[in-house]
Amino acid sequence: MEFYLAILVGLIFAASTYMLLSRSVIRLVLGVALLGNAVNLLIFTVGRVTRHIPPIIPLDLQGELTGIANPLPQALILTAIVIGFAIFSFILVLAYRAYESLGTDNSDEMRVAEPKKTELTKLTY
């Protein structure tokens, strides 16, 4: 099953990369959201997958517990999902504010920090 998941991870990465290479800021934001999903799934897959048995210890457990899903990647991903959401909201709002202030959603035209025409400065001491 890991094989299919690995392919899905690659597909999400590819889609996300394609979105990130767009001019439109909003596509960029969508690309970032996809990227978060891809990375989460990647960590999940690397931790190996088992079907159906969650990492929860039965209350009446006797002896060793075997065959359950790997809890470590799950703990990593759980916080990553929430933080990813927070960051996603942040860049979304950032894109929105940039759109408001600059009047464009085209990242090529957002050139406040790096203006298009830069005169070569002369040497002075």
Binding site: V9, G10, F13, A14, A15, T17, L42, T45
Partner: peptide, 12 residues
């Protein structure tokens, strides 16, 4: 995009 995606799949 294809290079990145397929690369990551193979790496994984």
């Amino acid at each position: 995009a294809v290079a990145v995606g397929s690369g990551l799949t193979l790496l994984l």
